[in-house]
Amino acid sequence: MSTVEDDEQDLTRKQRREQARAKRKELEQAEAATAVRRTRLTQLGIVVAIVVVIIVAVVIATGGGSKKGIPKNTHEKNAIVTEVTSLVGGIAQNGNTLGDPKAPVTLAYFGDLECPICREFTLGALPSLIQKYVRSGKLKIEYRSLETATKEPETFKTQQVAALAAGKQQKMWYFIELFYHQQGEEDSGYVTENYLQNLAQQVPGLNLTTWSAARSDPELANSIATDAQAANVAGFTGTPSFQIGKTGGPLKKLEYASLTEPSSFESAIESTLKA
């Protein structure tokens, strides 16, 4: 063999070795990349799993869904009636108004009985306002109807008229309070004739025959239309909405920061009392 041939063979051997080394390196790098990717996916998976567990725990801890108020048994129903009676019992009522007719301040509360946010106000800020201002004769509250959450206008009319019909016996606020306390899931169609009859039966001292007869009074349906017009004039599109002012005088829109804490309402009442 010549020297040139030997050199050529050496080169080929060297090249093969280098190629094999490069291939091995590539393979090692690919394996390392796969391992890194796997580690990253595992880390990400752990984070996602922890977050899912925390969310589920928070949802369970803060209540699985909309807090349904429909009582499950007679005991719960009786507890609600007792609570409502202790809140509005002994306070003068006149139609849609709760409180002394001569109270110096009037608060108009535009609500829809199926509106969950109205429920939040009714069970949140309202009780302390009733205790502090209505019981002491400084404030009277007028409940006015504005359709928002109730999808079917007929259902809205039926339920609001049912409340107004209780007002014919000066018990509308019992009915309103009981409705909000036992409000069902929005859009679930829970407002049926049975539901309304059941509420009426819970109103202390309500004459059911008179109440049933009053529900067909066209004056009540007209008052709902009047309330809708008043809300339209005030520019209200959502519930709850409020107006406040001196009794007998013009009412102006009440701005609030919270429906569960009464501070916005209290300062509006105080400034109206001083005005």
Partner: peptide, 14 residues
């Protein structure tokens, strides 16, 4: 939309 949704969400118990 007249601020309804934001205000309600911001003042809700949640």
């Amino acid at each position: 939309r007249n601020g309804g949704g934001c205000e309600i969400v911001q003042t809700s118990e949640y």
